[in-house]
Each structure stands twice: as structure tokens, then as C-alpha cells.
Design a protein around this nucleic acid. Structure first.
Lengths: 200, 200
DNA sequence: CATTATAGTGAACGATAGTTCTCTTGTCAA
DNA sequence: TTGACAAGAGAACTATCGTTCACTATAATG
């Protein structure tokens, strides 16, 4: 079906664009990966740039569906260890889910060329995680699990180092194991510093 | 002189590659920016790829000269405020020095395509700052300015958020002022959490 | 059944990519 | 002063780029 082929094209475009960039990918290579001849793709998209725009539309929609809505927020952990566990689950998914990895790599590569990619990159790399953890840390303060402090600042201090290690995994996947261990070590360091050990 | 032209070519290549990437830059545009015709460049470089390799060589040499040697380490601050000041000086330079910004953008764009760019990217984005601040924090612990802790972990927890904000400036230069303020706020938060307030 | 839209083919197009070649100019050493 | 060489100009080459077009096979529609 047409809809199906269009979807397959976008999937393959994500694979190639995230590896070689938009300019570094040609439609011959793209269509060959799909088992067709290069002219066929113009039955589905008007131009290479339209493929890029459609791909960006999809990435934006995916981001909003997955991370945009407040009800998609993870529940506030009941213990400090619960925070570590939740973090490791999130990190594991983020590092190993192919589509998410490719999306991140593509945004990394194209962020200086395309304004929409730039905005989405900031969400993916900076504000997204921070806004996710801010209410979570506020909740943990309410529960007496974390020292009272600015939750947004704590969220930033917590998520930025984790983000840096996720980027390392994108760049050097063979270090993923090591990086995951560092994420856990950092998370434990964090709860040691900010966590409240109850002496009641 | 020949040496001079070669240097000018590399400078312009850095400007264009960091904006549009290696694949997205053509030598016509590159030579036109230098006021010559495209064939002339082959008197200085054998190919486009050789320009890329020479540029990488230069970036690696520059990095090693500037951040590689231990004697280039900044002095251990005598006060907690001294750490903030030193950080702001470093951040200001890193965010506003054109060559450094372009180098970072280029490494960001090309890190998935070239192995040497990948390695240099990890140094620029992760290990470099950490290795710079680890002995510095160890010294501050010796001086009783910081709580005793793993200096490498503290260095990571300190530099990663700052790095994230520097990346934001690369992506959205209009937010540089805001980002610098956030760096200072984070630095002050950090010394509040880890700093030792002397009650002797 | 006839028809019409759809999806894919293969040849061809103009534009542009990186590169090479020949020629001219200016500079410096013998 | 002459010869050699470095540096650039401009035309031309080949390959490849994104794209178009005429055509065919298939499947859905009246």
C-alpha cells in the first residue's frame, strides 16, 4: 500500500540520515535500501527535502506523544533507591531503543542547519529531561526523600550528567556498558548528596 | 606565501564545514570565500578529503596544546567564590571564542562519520573538562574548601551541566546571556552543596 | 468487462560535484 | 638577464546529484 511505502521510506531515511546526514545521503542509496529504483520514490514524495520535512514532522509528533504530555510523567518514587531504579530503566531504554538513538543522532547532526531540528534538539538534549524530573523531585521533597531545594536546579544537576553519558553512548556504542555503570554510580552519588536519611 | 594560503584555506574550511558539514560544503563555495577560483585550491591540497584531514590534524594539535598538558591546568582556587569566578572566565571564553565554537560545532556534526572526530568530540564534550577539574577539586578538598568525596565524580557532576549549557549556546547563540547566568547559578548551587563553610 | 488510478521501471535530463589540464603571471635564484 | 618554479586562472572532463518523463503492470472501481 502507498501509506506503507511512505512509512518505509521515512524509516530508511532516518537510518541513513542519522548516519551520514541529510547532505551526505543520496536518494539512490535510499531507494536501493528499499529495493527500488531511484525514480520510484517520487511517486511518494515530491523531493528529497520533502522527505526531510516529513521525517521532522514525524519526530516532532513522536516526541510530543511520548514526552510532551504531563500524564506521561513517571510516578514519584517512594524511596531513594526507587529513583535510581527508575533512572536506570529510563536510561536503558533511551540508550538501546534504535529509533530514539537514531533520532538523537540525526538531531545532533542537523541542529545547525534546520531551525525545527534545532528546537527539537534543545528539547531532547536539555529541557525535556529537566522538565520531566522537576515535578518528580518536587514530589520527592514533599515526601521528605530529598532535601528542600530548587527542584528545577536539582533536575538540571541530575539530568545533565546523565544526558552527557547518553551522548557518549551514541558516539561510542561499545562504551554503553561502562556508561550505564557510570550513570548508576552518578545516580547513587546524587541520592547520597541530596537524599534525606531518616533518623526519626 | 604558500604556507599562508594553506592556513587561510583551513580557516575558511572550518567556518564552512562547521556550518554546513563536510558533505554540505563544496569547494567552489570554499574557494569563492577566499577570492579564488576552485581549481586553484589543488595547488595547496590534493583533494577535499585532504583538507578535512589537515583540519582535523590542526584541531587535534590545538586541543593538545591548549588542554592536553598538565602544566596548563588552572591554579586551585583559594575560595569557593574563586571557583565560581574561574568557571565564569572559562565559560565566557569557551562560549565566545569563535574558533573554539566552530571547532565544537564541527565535531558535533561530524562525530559519527569520522573516527578521529569522534575521539576528539569525547574529549571536548566529556573527558576534557572532567580531567581538568578532577585535580582542581582534589586540591580544594586538601585546602578544606570542599567536602571530602571522589574528586572525579564531583568534577563530572560539575562540568557536565556546564557543558550542556555551552552546547545550548552553540545551538542557540541568542540564549548565550541566559545560559551564562544559568552557569553561574549552577556554580553557586554547587558550592552551596559541596562547599565547606568554616565554623572554626 | 472496460477503465482508471497507482506504483514501479528505465532512460534521460540539466546541474553541479570533485578533479585535471593547459596556460599565464610573478618572483626569486643563479 | 635568464631560467625555474610557485600560484593562480579558466576551460574541460567525468561522475553523480536530484529530478522528470514516457511507459508498463497491477489492482481497484464503475
Amino acid at each position: 500500500m502507498a501509506k506503507d511505502t511512505k512509512e518505509r521510506i521515512l524509516t530508511t531515511a532516518l537510518v541513513l540520515f542519522s548516519q551520514n546526514g541529510y547532505a551526505g545521503t543520496n536518494i539512490r542509496e535510499l531507494t536501493a535500501s528499499l529495493g527500488m529504483v531511484k525514480s520510484s520514490i517520487y511517486k511518494h514524495f515530491e523531493s528529497k527535502e520533502e522527505i526531510w520535512n516529513a521525517l521532522l514532522d514525524e519526530m516532532i509528533a513522536y516526541y510530543n506523544a511520548r514526552f510532551g504530555s504531563p500524564e506521561r510523567l513517571p510516578p514519584v518514587p517512594d524511596t531513594l533507591d526507587g529513583l535510581v531504579e527508575m533512572t536506570m530503566r529510563l536510561a536503558d531504554f533511551t540508550v538501546h531503543d534504535e529509533k530514539v538513538v537514531m533520532t538523537r543522532k540525526l538531531l545532533t547532526i542537523e541542529q545547525f542547519r534546520d531551525e525545527r531540528a534545532r528546537d527539537l534538539a534543545t528539547k531532547h538534549f536539555l529541557t525535556g529531561l529537566r522538565e520531566m524530573f522537576t515535578p518528580l523531585f518536587a514530589g520527592m521533597m514533599d515526601k521528605g526523600l530529598l532535601r528542600r531545594d530548587d527542584p528545577a536546579m536539582l533536575a538540571f544537576a541530575y539530568t545533565a550528567p546523565i544526558s552527557a553519558l547518553i551522548h557518549l553512548c551514541d558516539r561510542e556504542p561499545e562504551k554503553a556498558g561502562e556508561a550505564m555503570a557510570q550513570i548508576e554510580a552518578f545516580s547513587r552519588h546524587f541520592i547520597n548528596v541530596y537524599g534525606v536519611t531518616d533518623h526519626a
